[in-house]
Amino acid sequence: MPFNWTFIVLTAFFLGVAWWAGKQFDKVRYISERDPLTGTYNRRTVEHYFQKAAKVCDLKKQSLGVIMLDLNNFKEINDEHGHHKGDELLIQIASTLNNYVTKNDLVARWGGDEFIILVPDMKKDIANEYVNKLQRAITLQNADSFSNVGASVGYAIYPQQEKNFHKLVQEADANMYKGKKEK
């Protein structure tokens, strides 16, 4: 029985097509989950992740921190130096956040100059320390390039303060603006 090269060629061809299709799927998934400027996750992804993380927290009797972060003086950067510099700052902040958080935390750009971080198993007694260290990390990281930029940060904790994601975000946002007004 002669060896059939057609089988080998077709198998290699279809494996190549399958590999290419898989790569395309990965690219589309990445694009659909990420903010195009900062590379952090987007709103839709953080909302989906929260639902899954909340179920895990319920099973393990743990909490989940929802941290909101808003850049101070961001509008001035855009007005004085242009949107390109503002984009550079957002990219730098995203990098700082990703370097600061643990592998179980999720960082997302919420919109404009706001970011949200989900922190599994965050307890109220360590939340203030976490927030203060985060604010210092952002201020120190940007001291050379953007010396007048800091961050206002607020948090809410699931399920102690609220179980609904959007209400937790509102609570964290309200706490963030309380801190912003105190400065």
Rank of each mutant, 00 (worst) to 15 (best):
W5P: 10
V9H: 09
A12S: 15
F13I: 13
L15I: 13
G16Y: 12
A18N: 11
W20Y: 14
G22K: 14
D26C: 11
R29T: 13
I31M: 15
V46F: 01
V46A: 03
V46R: 00
V46D: 01
E47M: 13
F50M: 04
Q51H: 13
D58S: 12
D58M: 12
K60G: 00
K60Y: 09
K61C: 09
S63D: 10
V66G: 10
M68Q: 11
L69A: 08
L71D: 03
N72M: 10
N73M: 05
E76C: 03
H81K: 14
K85V: 14
L89N: 05
L97Y: 01
N98Q: 15
N99H: 10
N99T: 01
T102Y: 06
T102L: 09
K103R: 15
L106S: 05
A108E: 01
R109Q: 04
W110A: 03
E114T: 09
V119I: 06
P120E: 00
M122T: 00
K124W: 01
D125T: 04
D125V: 04
D125E: 13
I126R: 06
E129A: 06
N132S: 10
N132P: 00
Q135L: 00
L140H: 12
F146Y: 15
F146D: 01
V149R: 08
G150V: 00
S152H: 11
S152K: 08
A156S: 15
I157Y: 02
Y158E: 01
P159N: 02
E162V: 02
K163H: 08
K163F: 01
N164E: 15
F165N: 02
F165K: 05
L168K: 11
D173W: 11
N175R: 15
Y177M: 07
Y177V: 07
G179A: 09
G179R: 14
K181V: 08
K183I: 08
